[in-house]
Design a protein around this nucleic acid. Structure first.
Lengths: 231, 231
DNA sequence: TGTACATCAGTGAACGCGCGTTCACTGATGTAC
DNA sequence: TGTACATCAGTGAACGCGCGTTCACTGATGTAC
């Protein structure tokens, strides 16, 4: 079957392109990819119509890969263990970022000027936030309230957030819960990015320990830790 | 005075290079800069020995510029108004990032592969965190405790953090305060980066309002808001 | 089962471009006597 | 004040490179009768 061989080579091209990311960041070179595969550069155009299309494939794959890892890690935890689920998500993001540093930078680093991610990435890109929202829903259902009340939501924010929640089929979710979760989502990726993008270099910190501390901190303000666990 | 003209042109080169950042991100082109200035590309080498040196100058300038803005904004607030100082810093970071999006990406986005920032950036780069630490010291002196206790610091983290604090001449600062502040620092830049790097695109959120909400959220867990302000 | 034909993966040359950096040079600006 | 000289900003050509993409082509793989 020709299709089989084609699919295999498509994967090899993407794998080689992924490796290229380490060298050049987002401006990967078709010729370099071809060279690594022992092909002539024009042959790549049988598989990807342009450099942008290849880049898009990498981005989409990366979002999907991260999403799958997170979903798998989170689903291994008992539904009732809310803190465990949070940790699975948080550590899942970091673990993936450590394992795929250049893909992480591609997804969560500075955007490539002039590049517009296609619609198809939107769904997989939203998975981390969705998992957190589901977690917050369960916490809400269990009557777990965040340790400290969040600030009041201005009406304008509240209505935008409610609209967003409605779009996601979360009409029941209070706006402030959604906001709360979005804060943690931002915080979580902020922590991973700081580590990955070198902001902690020279600090001497053990990255994993420091991250775990931060994740627990977030769990605290999400109201997921039992009060006894706090110092 | 030849030196005067030289200094002026050096500034013009940097200004043009800064403008280039918008087009190409970190891989700015010497020839493009020269073109914009109506010079021949080799003339630039009278001013900067290499592309890397020019890039370094941009990065250093940007760190210094941000640091000055923050210091100026924070110093305009009464020393006793801790929440006001926090807001000045937080909004200062965001305002600067909005005004200088490409420089922000250069400093806080994905690192340029193969580029190593020189020692001279370390000092100005640390200003945001230093301002926060000073704020925390004052809060501590005023007896303000964070609303919710942070998680316990594992001993290994505690000792690394204490060493860091000592290096900064903050031997008196409890490790957990430093950790607390570092969390907010991470969170703050996480929020700005999410906005700047397009993670909020399509959400319909008013970026400024959403940021203010988040900043107040952080102020909450830093213990800077009066309990009455919480919902 | 065997032949004729269509598909399509991969080739190699080429186009036209931009890049960082070097180097010998011209001329203007400053300095020293 | 005027001349001789050193400094140095800017020029223009060149080196040697890499790039994305197109295009006419060769041959092998599959398909249809």
């Amino acid at each position: 079957m020709r299709a089989r061989v084609r699919a295999e080579l498509t994967e090899q091209i993407k794998a080689s392109a992924r490796a290229q990311l380490a060298v050049d960041g987002a401006n990967l070179s078709m010729r370099a990819v071809a060279r690594e595969l022992g092909m002539v550069s024009s042959a790549l155009y049988r598989y990807f119509a342009s450099r942008d299309e290849l880049l898009t494939a990498l981005i989409t794959d990366a979002y999907v890969d991260l999403a799958c890892d997170l979903e798998a890690a989170e689903s291994r935890v008992s539904r009732r263990d809310l803190l465990g689920r949070w940790r699975a998500i948080a550590c899942g993001v970091r673990t993936w970022a450590v394992a795929h540093p250049y893909e992480y930078a591609l997804l969560y680093g500075s955007p490539v000027p002039g590049y517009q991610a296609p619609q198809s990435t939107i769904q997989p890109a939203s998975v981390p936030l969705r998992l957190l929202v589901a977690l917050a829903l369960d916490a809400d259902a269990q009557g777990l309230a965040p340790a400290a009340g969040p600030p009041r939501l201005p009406p304008e924010l509240r209505s935008t957030i409610s609209e967003l929640a409605d779009l996601e089929g979360l009409a029941g979710l209070p706006a402030w819960v959604f906001a709360h979760v979005a804060v943690a989502w931002t915080h979580l990726f902020g922590a991973v990015s700081f580590e990955r993008f070198g902001r902690l270099q020279g600090s001497g910190l053990d990255y994993a320990l420091w991250f775990d501390y931060q994740a627990d901190f977030m769990a605290g303000y999400l109201g997921l830790t039992r009060p006894g666990a706090q110092a």
